[in-house]
Simulated scan of single mutants.
Amino acid sequence: MQPLPLLSYFAQQAQAKLPADVWHYLQSDAGSGLQLQVNELGWQSKKLLPRPLRALQQANTRCELFSEQWAHPLLLAPVAYQRLFHADGEIGSAVACNAQQGQMMVSSLASQPISEIVTQAQQPLWFQLYWQGDRERTAALLQKALAAGVSAVVFTVDAPVKQALIDLPDGISAVNLAQPLSMRPVHMGQSQVFDGWMTQAPTWEDVAWLRQQVPIPLLLKGLMHVDDAKRAVEYGCDGVVISNHGGRVLDSTPSVAAVLPAVVAAVGSQCKVLVDSGIRSGQDVFKALAMGADAVCIGRPYIWGLAAEGAMGVAKVIRTLRDELEMTMALTGVSNLSELRQVGLFE
C-alpha cells in the first residue's frame, strides 16, 4: 500500500488524537463545507509546465519582506487557541517556525502570553490584531504586542467581531485580552446583526486611526476586492493579505487564486501582497508566488502537525511544504523567487 503524503498523514493523526468537537472546530467553514473545496481547487486548477535541462544558478527559496530575511516564503497564519490542539500551543509553533527559519503570525486569541511566545521563539514575530470593539481596548492589546517586540501587525478585518465558536475547556482562553469581548444587548425590534454585532465592527476610519498607532509595518488581512486593496494602500498600509479566512466567515466567495492576479495588478507595485486559504502543498505555494504573491500563509496544515506531534510536527509540515516548493522549482527550471514570479501558469 502506498504511504499517505505527509500532510494527509498528519491530518489523519490529528483527527484521531483530537476530541470530535475540537476537530470539527478546526475543520469547519462558514456554511456547506463547499468553500474549503473551492479554496483548494482554486490552486489545483492552475497547471504547470515542466522545463527540463535548465541550469539552476545558486538555487534557493530565500524571501525578504520588510527587511526581514527568511529561508522560505511560508508564514504560519494566525490560528486561535493552539493549546486546544496540543499542550505545546503557540510556543511550540513559534519554536518550530524559528527552527525552520520562517515567520509566524500570532493570533489575538492566542492561548499563551504573547511575550512568552516571542521570547521562546527567539525572534520577533508578527501579531495578528482583531478589533476589540472600540479604540481604547484595541490600543491596549496593540501596546501589549508592541511591548513584546513584534515586528509587524496584521489587522484582520474580514471577521468584524471574533469570538470562540467552541466551548473552551478550563485552562484555555485568550490570555492576552483584558476581558472577552461581549456583544451589546439589543432591544425588542432591533437587529442582532446591525444593532448589536456591527456596532462593534471596525471601519476605514479605524484603519486610518490604527495606522497612526502602529510604528512598524501594518498589513490588512481578509481582503478579496480590488477596490479594498487599493484603499488599504491609500490609507498607508504596507501590505495586504488576500484571504477569505479559510472559508470560515462567508460562504460562496471566490477562491483566493481567482482574485489574486487582479489584486497584484492593482497594488503589487505599491505594497506587499500575501495570500492564505486553501494552501495544501508546495505546488500550491509555487502557484501563488507565480501569480504575484510575495509570500504565502498556511493555517490548518501546520495545526495538523501540531496536534499530531507538537512542535516537531509543525517543523515537519513547514519542511515538507518547502521541500515540495523546491522540487517544483527544480522541475520548472526556476532558481529563486524572483524568477518564479515570471513563470506563466496554464489555466
Rank of each mutant, 00 (worst) to 15 (best):
L6V: 11
V157I: 13
W70A: 12
Q270F: 12
V186Y: 12
Q163R: 03
L4P: 13
L74I: 15
R135C: 07
A139K: 05
V214R: 06
R319K: 14
G246Y: 05
L18E: 07
L129T: 11
A266V: 09
A140R: 11
M188V: 01
V157P: 00
G247E: 06
T320F: 05
G344P: 07
P180R: 12
Q213M: 08
L250C: 05
Y9A: 11
R300W: 01
A201S: 11
L220F: 06
R248C: 02
F155K: 02
L6A: 15
V214F: 12
A71E: 09
V175W: 03
E339A: 05
A94D: 06
L210N: 13
L218Y: 06
Q103R: 12
Q44I: 00
V241T: 00
V193M: 09
N39I: 14
V193C: 01
V95Y: 06
R137G: 13
L250D: 01
A139D: 07
T156F: 05
A288Q: 04
R135K: 15
L129C: 03
S111Q: 13
G278W: 02
A229G: 03
M183E: 06
F66K: 00
D284S: 15
A152T: 10
S8G: 00
G171D: 08
W204I: 07
T61V: 14
L65C: 08
L41S: 09
L56M: 07
L53W: 14
P261M: 07
T203A: 08
Q103T: 00
Q69W: 05
R135M: 00
I117G: 04
F10G: 07
G310H: 06
S191Y: 01
G305R: 08
A265P: 00
L306V: 00
S107I: 04
H86P: 12
T156M: 03
F10L: 12
L250K: 04
D88G: 02
G247R: 10
L56I: 12
P52I: 14
L56D: 02
M312R: 15
L141W: 10
G239L: 02
S281H: 08
V241G: 01
I318P: 11
A152F: 11
Q143S: 11
V161F: 05
A290E: 01
R300A: 07
G344A: 15
D323C: 09
L53C: 00
W43I: 01
V263D: 00
V79K: 11
A159S: 06
D134E: 04
S45T: 12
T320I: 08
A307N: 07
P261C: 10
L48Y: 01
G236K: 13
V334N: 04
Q270H: 14
S115Q: 14
A96E: 09
T320C: 15
N244V: 01
Q163C: 01
R248K: 12
T199N: 04
V264A: 07
T119R: 08
Q35Y: 03
L181I: 09
I318H: 12
L18S: 06
L76Q: 11
G305H: 08
A147Y: 02
V263A: 01
C271Q: 11
K144H: 04
L18A: 03
P113D: 03
K17Q: 14
D228M: 04
I216K: 05
V273A: 03
L129E: 02
D21K: 14
D21V: 10
A77P: 06
H86V: 11
I318F: 14
L181Q: 10
A11Q: 12
V79M: 14
H225E: 08
A266Q: 12
A262C: 06
P160H: 07
L56A: 00
G92P: 15
G133R: 02
C297F: 10
R231T: 13
